[in-house]
């Protein structure tokens, strides 16, 4: 019963937006609008799920870990989550206190974590980027020109570098990406079809 209901809801949600796209019929447009609006609300509820999972994991860390650092980190994480939520829910996400936490912790935190990638890339460039065969040679050729073409020093080294870099992105890269894009598109379409028709039942277990 529950499985049939889930399959029916999945199918209906998908088929309504597909039909409304191809047929300009009043009731389909209304149904599409409803389903889309409802989707936004349900997705907003789903946002809290990740945070609840995080709380569960960290409560477990506090209760079961023997490592003091581990426990302190879990407490700090939960405290930060609670404080941010309370300030946001009571004062709103544009209040001064909220902005201090956003600008002082969240934004620089994520930004720095992303930026650290440059160090690991540099280490990988030194230790792993070896021209062992044709494939690796093409990879190096393409990446070297794209890197140098992206910055002014490339033009200083050789005036042709920006043009070669642009050509790599616009011609061979574009052709390859297009092939992958079409392939991925066909894959996504067939995956969606399998889901709507109940052939792929990942969501109903």
């Amino acid at each position: 019963m529950l499985r049939t209901a889930t399959l029916a809801v999945t199918f209906l949600a998908g088929i309504i937006v597909i039909l409304a796209f191809f047929f300009d019929v009043g009731f389909l447009a209304t149904a599409e609008a409803r389903v889309q609006d409802w989707g936004v609300i349900v997705a907003a509820f789903a946002l809290a799920m990740a945070s609840i999972n995080l709380v569960q994991v960290n409560i477990r860390r506090i209760s079961s870990s023997d490592d003091a650092t581990e426990k302190i980190c879990a407490v700090v994480l939960l405290a930060a989550l609670v404080v941010m939520s309370i300030i946001g829910l009571t004062q709103g996400p544009t209040s001064d206190t909220y902005n201090v936490l956003f600008d002082g912790i969240m934004a620089p935190g994520q930004s720095t974590v992303w930026a650290l990638g440059v160090f690991y890339i540099s280490s990988a460039a030194y230790r792993a980027f070896r021209v062992k065969n044709v494939d690796a040679g093409l990879l190096l050729f393409s990446s070297a020109f794209v890197m140098l073409g992206a910055v002014p020093i490339g033009e200083v080294i050789w005036s042709g570098i920006p043009a070669v870099s642009q050509w790599i992105v616009d011609v061979p890269n574009m052709a390859g990406m297009r092939g992958m894009l079409i392939g991925a598109g066909i894959g996504a379409f067939s995956g969606g079809l399998r889901l709507l028709l109940g052939i792929d039942r990942t969501e109903v277990g």
């Binding site: 540099s122 460039a125 890197m147 910055v151």
Partner: peptide, 8 residues
């Protein structure tokens, strides 16, 4: 960029 290419 130049430094990373020198590393490679």
């Amino acid at each position: 960029h130049l430094m990373i290419l020198i590393f490679v």
